[in-house]
Simulated assay, not measured.
Amino acid sequence: MQHRQTVKGNFSLTNPAVRAWIYQILAVVVLLVFIGHLLHNTVTNVSHRGITSGFGFLNNAANFGIVQHLIDFEQGDTYARVFLVGLFNTLLVSALCIVFASILGFIIGLARLSENWLLRKLSMIYIETFRNIPPLLQIFFWYFAVLRNLPGPRNSINASELIFLSNRGLYMPYPVAGEGALAALIAFGVAIVAAVGLYRFNKKHQMKTGEPRRSWPWIILLLVALPLLVQWVAGPAVHWDVPALRGFNFRGGVVLIPELAALALALSVYTSAFIAEVIRSGIQSVPHGQHEAARSLGLPNPVTLKQVILPQAMRVIIPPLTSQYLNIVKNSSLAAAIGYPDMVSLFAGSVLNQTGQAIETIAITMGVYLVISLCISFLMNIYNQRKALVER
């Protein structure tokens, strides 16, 4: 009898655990009802307007051209091809900004901790200036105030008649694979394997005997001489397609359009200011005793920074650095403001206007950004786990 009363008491509304489960179940039910209501309204409105749903529109022809595409694209290709062009353009600008912002942020972050008063103050001004100006305004500045005011193609700035800079973009020679391309690629791979083996051999020799051996002169010789020797035998690995002025614009080569340059410059400079503060805070999180211990051993400052400080600071740097990389990917959607053909401009803009498939195009665009961000987070988390301090 007492056992039954105890069980009954456990399922009573006076039990906090029971009330908590009831509240959670009610919250889930309300959420499901809300989602169902939204889906019902969406399906009803789409059917009333005669809009066909589904992803069959991806096989239809796109009646517009794209100024920049990393894969072949012509007007009349399918919307699925447009999706690939927008995806690659988004990945391109995101990768460029991540690389440039990381390098620039690391340099500015170290300058922020410099013992030189002028260098320290200039880096502080850089950080406080660029991180407090909205990225969209910085994009407009680089695009309208700088790049669009460059001279036209006929008066372009050129370097040895190979590289041309104008308001149409930066035109550079483009490498085209030659008859010796495969042989040179294999030779370069062999050179990399040999260089790694030589470095490890010299490292083991130093650990055993204490006698250091220089590896870098032989590594450079391997990486340069072996592919050149193979090209001399098998033929040139590449031919260069050099841009030339034809009419009112350049033809040939590869072009870095002003929209891409403005977006990459603005986002790199903007994000580098945040990364610089991440680097500074990470380095300052390392106990000062580590600096003193390195000095007592006679280690020079560059070696101390590389071998002692940065390995300990990375566990603090990586999590906020990941957030900055994610912000770069998301801020790249601002490209639509200046007409750079990224995912938002192409798929959530041009394709949506031509097809009217709002739900599908927006869902695809959101899904792309979500997948890219999750991949970056996954890779950075793996790197973070490898750099984490393990207590034994």
Rank of each mutant, 00 (worst) to 15 (best):
E128Y: 05
V43P: 01
T6K: 10
L228K: 15
R213Y: 09
L104K: 04
L346G: 10
E277T: 02
L260M: 15
V67E: 07
N384W: 13
P319I: 02
S123P: 00
Q206D: 11
S332E: 06
E211H: 10
G253P: 07
N202S: 15
I186S: 09
V308I: 09
H48D: 11
A358M: 01
K203E: 11
H239W: 11
M343H: 08
D77A: 11
I186V: 13
I362Q: 01
L58W: 08
Q75T: 14
F83L: 14
L38I: 04
T6C: 12
T322K: 00
V99R: 06
S123C: 03
V18M: 13
V7A: 15
A194V: 09
H69V: 10
Q206K: 14
G86Y: 01
T355I: 07
Q231V: 05
I309Q: 01
R81I: 09
S323Y: 07
I22C: 10
L389D: 12
I309G: 04
A348H: 03
V286A: 02
W232D: 10
A184I: 12
M124K: 00
V368Q: 02
L118E: 04
I71M: 05
N45R: 09
M172G: 12
V254Y: 12
P341Y: 05
G339Q: 07
V371Q: 00
H48W: 09
F64T: 05
G253V: 10
V30Q: 03
I382H: 06
P153A: 09
G86Q: 04
L58A: 06
